[in-house]
Design a binder for these strands. Structure first.
Lengths: 141, 141
DNA sequence: TATGATAATAGTAATTATTACTAATAATGG
DNA sequence: CCATTATTAGTAATAATTACTATTATCATA
C-alpha cells in the first residue's frame, strides 16, 4: 500500500538473512544484528521480516513447534527439520513436485495459489550420534 | 513413558475431534467441550490434544499464521488453507506424493520419517464471492 | 470392595512469540 | 532546506501455549 522507504535496519536484516543458511528465527536475527546496531528493536526485526516476506525478498517458514523461521533463499525449494536438534536444512525440489498443485487442483472448485512441502526426521549429525549410541549400548550391556 | 489412564475429558476431546471436520483450534475444541463439561480447563484440552497427537490418534497441523489446528482423521491426506477466510479443507493424497519422501531421501545422509504437504489459495466459497464482486464492479463503474 | 499408587484434572500463574502504540528520528521529493 | 511521511526504539499489550499445584479420578491388587 504505502511507499516503502529505505532503512539501514531493514537492509541489515535482509543482508543478514541472505548471508546465513541456518533458517534463523526472528530472535536469532535480532541477536546477530544487535552486534552492528545495538539499539535495534526486536519489533523492528519482526516488522521488517514480515515486510520482506510480503515483498517476496525472503521466505517465512512456519514450523510444527517453535517460532517461525526465515529463509533468505527465494528460489523454490523444500525444507527438512530434524526432530532431534531442531535444525532446518534446504532440500532441492523433488521431481514431479511442481505437478502436485496442478494435479490436485483439477478436482477442486477453489483456486490453488501455492504449496508447501516439508520433511522431517533425523539430520545426518543426529543420525550418526544415535547409531553410535546404539552400538556402544550393545557393547556395554 | 508413563502409563496412560483413561479420562472422560480426553475421551470427549477425542470424540469431538473425530465428529467434526473443520480442523478446529484448541480453543474451538474447548468451547465445544465446555457444553458437556462446563468446568473443563483449557490446559486440559491442550494437554490432551498433544497427548492424542503423540499417540497417533489425531493429527496436529501447524499453520503459516494463527494457532495450531487439529484433525481427527489420521489416514494420510493433505490440507488446503484458504488465505481469505482461513478455513482448512482436506485434500486426498496426490498421485506420486508418497514417492516424494523416498526420492528425496536417496541423496540425504540423514533419515526422513515423514512429510507434510500443504496447499493454500482461495476456497470455493471465497473464490465465488471474489468473482461475483469483480463482475458487479465492472457493471458499476 | 477397600486401598494405595499414580495419572489426570481444574484453576491459575508464567512463558513464549508476536503485534500494537507512540513520540522521536530518518528518508525522500520538491 | 523544508515538508511530508515512513521508520524506528522503546514499551505495553495480546495471543497461544505451557507449567505448577492441590485435589480428584483411575485402576491394579489385596
Amino acid at each position: 500500500m504505502a511507499v516503502v522507504k529505505f532503512s539501514r535496519q531493514r537492509e541489515a536484516i535482509r543482508k543478514n538473512l541472505i548471508r546465513r543458511c541456518d533458517h534463523p528465527t526472528a530472535d536469532m536475527v535480532y541477536q546477530d544484528i544487535r552486534k552492528e546496531y545495538p539499539n535495534i528493536s526486536l519489533g523492528t526485526v519482526y516488522r521488517n521480516l514480515s515486510l520482506l516476506a510480503e515483498l517476496g525478498e525472503i521466505q517465512k517458514i512456519s514450523t510444527v513447534s517453535g517460532p517461525d523461521r526465515f529463509d533468505g533463499m527465494t528460489a523454490p525449494h523444500d525444507h527438512f527439520t530434524c526432530s532431534q536438534c531442531g535444525c532446518m536444512l534446504d532440500f532441492p525440489l523433488a521431481d514431479g513436485e511442481k505437478q502436485l498443485q496442478k494435479q490436485v487442483g483439477k478436482a477442486f472448485a477453489g483456486r490453488i495459489d501455492g504449496q508447501v512441502v516439508q520433511f522431517f526426521g533425523l539430520c545426518p549429525d543426529c543420525l550418526k550420534k544415535q547409531e553410535g549410541s546404539h552400538i556402544s549400548n550393545e557393547n556395554n550391556i
